[in-house]
Amino acid sequence: MHRQSVVAWIAVAGCLCGAPAVAQVDIAGLWRPLPRNQDGSGLTGDMAGVPVSPEGRWRTQSWSPDNFDVAEWVCRPHAWDYSLEGPLSPIRFWPEIDQPTQKLIAYHGHINMMEQETSIWMDGRARPPANTPHTWSGFSTGEWEGDTLVVTTTHLKEAYIRRWGLMRSDRSVVRTRWRRIGSFLQATSILYDPVYLAEPYIRTTMMWVFDSAMPMNPYPCEEATETAVPRGSVPHFLPGRNPLPGLNPQVTDAFGTPYEPRLGGPETMYPEYIAKMKAFPRPKQVEAAGP
């Protein structure tokens, strides 16, 4: 090979290798969720598999289903990070492009449940100060790691991990890794919460399929004005008095899950715990699954 050609090829290779990581894929489009296990066993109050801290467990144990009927909370949406795992999660992502440079500024997302929206800023902008408002979707920035879009979300409001009182705090940070595999979109989210978790909580079951014909229905909500909960009253159970089935040692679910693992905690996340579970007594009374 001619010496000049060799130099030229090396230069081209150098340029390619030295280029910053850029998106190899595009997550824009309409995404229909695939079925998934949304709420563990479905037994209300079952925390198995969630690395709750003692504080997270105590918080759950005071929760009352009447909380849904508090006028102020009727329009509380699934926070964006819960929506990914929960029901009603059709998503639309669309890009915002800087026209002169054709660079990606952000991906904006809309999820069906109560019309939650997010912006994933791809332009390297700084995070807002700590004292700016927190929202249900938080403030998100994204960067590519190969073909994976890694999103970091801060400035989150307190919200639920499960709808029956298992909470994450407003100190939470969520890292979401988005991968597009052909017509499928997959998300892995890692939730860090120093208040209600004792270890990061990793969720991997979220998967969507591209569906350009998917309808995205509106989901409006108006504050309730007829409710069984009087103004100013806060439904809750005093310590040790919560009747939720998941917190009742006498009942179990269709799988016969013992009571002890239902209290959750880091240990219950790991496969080794299955052997330990087998040693626990199984309650005989089977309770119907919750909502």
């Binding site: 909370w73 329009c75 949406p77 019309e115 939650q116 927190h134 929202t135 806060v234």
Partner: peptide, 30 residues
């Protein structure tokens, strides 16, 4: 009065801490 889905709308400046809205007030009341 929240603007939409229990957030935004009337903003709240607490004595200490971040700018808040209806949701933080309700959580604090709870």
């Amino acid at each position: 009065v929240p603007a939409k889905n229990a957030a935004g709308g009337t903003m709240v400046v607490p004595g200490h801490g971040r700018i808040a809205d209806h949701a933080e007030v309700v959580y604090y009341r709870d």
